[in-house]
Design a protein around this nucleic acid. Structure first.
Length: 125
RNA sequence: GGACCGAGUGGGGCAAUCGCGCCGUAUGUUGCCGAAAGGUAUUACGGUGAGGAAAGUCCGGGCAUCAUAGAGCAGGAUAACGGAUAACGUCCGUCCGAGGCGACUCGCGGGAAAGUGCAACAGAAAUAAACCGCCGUAUCCGUACGGUAAGGAUGGAAAGGCGAGGUAAGAGCUCACCCACUUCUAUGGUAACAUAGAUUUGCUGUAAACCCUAUCCGAUGCAACACCUUGACCAUCGGGUCACACCGAUAGGCUGCUCGCCAAACGUCAUGGUGGCAGAGCCAUAAGGCUUGAACUGCGCGGCGACACGCAGUGAAGAUAGAUGAUUGCCGCACGCAAGUGUACAGAACCCGGCUUACAAGCUCGGUCAAACA
RNA sequence: GGAGAAGUACUCAAGUGGUGAAGAGGCGCCCCUGCUAAGGGUGUAGGUCGGGUAACCGGCGCGAAGGUUCAAAUCCUUUCUUCUCCG
């Protein structure tokens, strides 16, 4: 499973301002329907619609080593969850790490994500 | 064995399952583009994938661009001597000074006898001297004038030290010895400098104050760079023309400044790189630059050494919101009776050479001191 | 990634070598008022350590550490934090 990343800063601010929100002890997840998903699907080689994902880890959490570890854990947890329960497609998903995420394992992150996406109703039926 | 000095090494390991970037090979009929050739998504296999500091950005280079980068001025940097190097503020060796019994360590270590400035407070006086004291002369016995740096007090710093001569009292004023210093000579050394001798002088400190001397430096940095986008405006004087055009000078711009260069553009004003209605519009926000380089490893050889030379071998990240990981088990190390807890500092972003700062445990080599204790 | 700027009481800050580090707001106390606000007066302490019954005295203190100087908030070096800018 490959992720398509959100590159533009304004999309992040849109997601914070307008998106649905779900917060757990380690995470905050923001979800917003992706209006340009159809365009991206044309650009995609297989014509699929995909979620665009952005990970946010602020400097408050630690140095570069700590932050990149948190980012990897987030990605790993999301990947594991996606394999079990596929998500709905065509959304912007921004995941922001909170300070307690530094000490956690990827399995804990997976549980956190599970709770958050359950709240938001993002799983396919 | 102890105490200490110096130089280096080191940066946890193994297995299973899942996963990521790049490169190569195959696949690519059934996905996509194409008339085709072919290209590509995908999938499989193989290879490879953070550091000693990747950090701070404090120096030095390579590389790239610039309205020519050339000259001069300004400005900046460095500062014992000799060498190493692409270069350096780095490194090596030596000298001098300071510290240590010693191994050894530390030093922004040129010039204050070119010039200028500053030295608060205190003190009579701060680069120049008379407050007290001492001595002489005058005296209305209060003091006034003159001489004097031996003594006093202040200060970070007070006019070389001690003795003798000398004098009204004193003073390098004179002499001997000592100290510092200038210049010269001899010897040793490439040189800084050292030693010895002669000679002048007796000089406050500060150059991380200005400055002087010597040497070096064009500016900007990979967001460099390859024409950023679009629209509008553009003055004055002289020559020239029917009027434009055109030419010259200025305003304005480029550079820290001048010479120099541009002048309907290299000038001026707005505009876009995301406040919302509306994630609209545009597509050079793509793709490159991007890793084979003063490279690393081993051996030989020259040199006290930094380092140089020769031979052989190796291919060792190149991403672009940013890969290099996750989970589990076992072992190692530290603390703890045990359960257990901890396992440093820290993440490439154009690339090298240094410096500085951060850093858990462990290991190796060379040397010094004392010979007390076992 | 690169280029710069700034750190001084609780806050805003002045001070570019010389006593004892200006000033304003804030804060405390007093006056005014039946009470409060506003207003007026007066003080605060620069923190910390040591000594002293106390008044007060001494040391180190201008983000941190080291150096130059007789003397450093100021000059030099290293370092930490915060902020700004970039085709």
């Amino acid at each position: 499973m490959k992720f398509r990343a959100i590159c533009e800063n304004h999309l992040y601010s849109k997601a914070y301002a307008k998106g649905k929100r779900a917060v757990t002890s380690a995470l905050a997840v923001y979800v917003l329907p992706d209006y340009s998903a159809k365009k991206l699907a044309k650009a995609h080689p297989e014509g699929r619609t995909v979620n665009r994902i952005g990970l946010t880890v602020s400097t408050k959490l630690g140095g570069a080593v700590v932050r990149s570890r948190v980012r990897r854990i987030l990605r790993e947890g999301l990947r594991a969850l996606e394999r079990e329960k596929p998500l709905k497609v065509g959304f912007l998903i921004v995941i922001a790490a909170r300070s307690s995420a530094v000490k956690l394992k990827s399995t804990d992150i997976k549980q956190n994500l599970n709770i958050a996406f359950e709240k938001l109703g993002m799983f396919k039926l």
